[in-house]
Simulated assay, not measured.
Amino acid sequence: MKKKYKILVGIIVSLFVLFIGAGFIAGNYFYNLALNPQSDKSAVLDAPHNLIDSNPNEVKEKEARETWFNSHYEETTIQSVDQLKLHAYSIKNQNESNKWAIIFHGYSSDGLQMTKYAKHFYDMGYNVLIPDARGHGKSEGDYIGMGWHDRLDVVSWIDNTVQLNNDAEIVLFGVSMGGATVMMASGEELPTNVKAIIEDCGYSSVWDEFSYQLKEIFHLPAFPIMYFASAVTKLKADYTLGEADTVKQVAKSQTPMLFIHGSNDTFVPSSMLNEVYDAANVPKEKLLVEGAGHGRAENVAGAKYWETIQSFISTVPVTHTIH
């Protein structure tokens, strides 16, 4: 009887060890797939989801914007709180202004892909700053922060802008991961220089977004892979997928916020719009663009997109309370 018991215990322990081992192998695979900047992202990116213009008119406009951008930008760097060298493109408006738009790009992209938004804010009278997120573009970093550690980088860019211009009036703007980044930053203690935050198609949390993608792309449930992937992320990038919670950060915000999403978004489901909007306890507005896919709200809405942004910015309070 004791022999059978020992055999049973041995089998259970062996299966448990195999389960844990297989779990960490799977978790490491999905970590590298999603959060290693050097890995092939074709399995998780359905280009053209990531702001890529496709029709001839858009291509021509894109080329004109890039020509303008390349002849105006200056490069600047700062050091992050964890000693990474972070890079950004800066354009001072030809008309002297204290207004600044700090613009954040999406997943597996870089600041150079945000020229469309930079030009619009510039034409609205703003100086523009377009950082490369950690692990992207010319910024240092060996993992993708999905907005979580990046939220502290946002604070660093804000502080740097205020040091250069104490009277700066700042608007934070981001699309996709950049949208989540500015929302996550909204829960930090921001200076009164930050007047408004505008997010376009950001996710409600990293856990929810990755769980959704795991099901949509790989047809797999969140349990147990997400738990192992989160453990690997903690070991390699020092954050868990569960703590990177956009909704909780937005609930702490003291800054007026505008939320934008496309109704046909299949990369970050449009249902996440109401989650973040409902969490905000500040002056707020939302714009759901019918028929727009991920990162395409501006293309589909056209002038209404920018009219909504300009109207929102013009009606926000001059100052906000520091918590």
Rank of each mutant, 00 (worst) to 15 (best):
Ile7Val: 14
Val17Asn: 08
Leu18His: 02
Phe19Ala: 14
Gly21Gln: 07
Asn28Ile: 05
Leu35Thr: 04
Leu35Ile: 12
Pro37Asn: 02
Gln38Lys: 15
Val44Met: 14
Leu45Met: 12
Asp46Gly: 04
Val59Cys: 05
Glu61Met: 15
Trp68His: 14
Val81Arg: 15
Lys85Gln: 15
Tyr89Asp: 07
Ile91Arg: 01
Asn93Ser: 06
Ser109Ile: 00
Asp110Lys: 12
Asp110Ala: 08
Tyr117Trp: 11
Asp123Trp: 08
Asn127Ile: 06
Val128Leu: 03
Arg134Ser: 10
His136Val: 03
His136Trp: 02
Gly145Trp: 11
Gly145Lys: 09
Gly147Val: 06
Asp150Arg: 06
Leu152Met: 13
Leu164Ile: 11
Val171Arg: 01
Gly174Glu: 04
Gly174Trp: 00
Met177Ala: 01
Gly178Phe: 00
Thr181Trp: 05
Leu190Met: 12
Ala196Trp: 03
Ala196Gln: 02
Ser204Gln: 01
Ser205Met: 04
Asp208Ile: 05
Phe210Val: 10
Leu214Gly: 10
Glu216Ile: 04
Ile217Ser: 02
Pro221His: 04
Tyr227Val: 13
Ala237Pro: 03
Thr240Lys: 12
Gly242His: 09
Asp245Trp: 00
Thr255Gly: 11
Pro256Gly: 10
Val268Leu: 08
Leu273Phe: 09
Asn274Ile: 07
Asn274Phe: 11
Val276Cys: 01
Val282Ala: 07
Val282Asp: 10
Leu287Phe: 15
Leu288Ala: 08
Gly295Arg: 00
Gly295Met: 02
Arg296Ile: 03
Glu298Tyr: 09
Gly302Leu: 05
Ile309Arg: 00
Ile309Leu: 06
Ile309Asp: 04
Ser311Val: 00
Thr315Ala: 10
Thr315Gly: 05
Thr319Val: 08
His320Phe: 06
His323Glu: 10
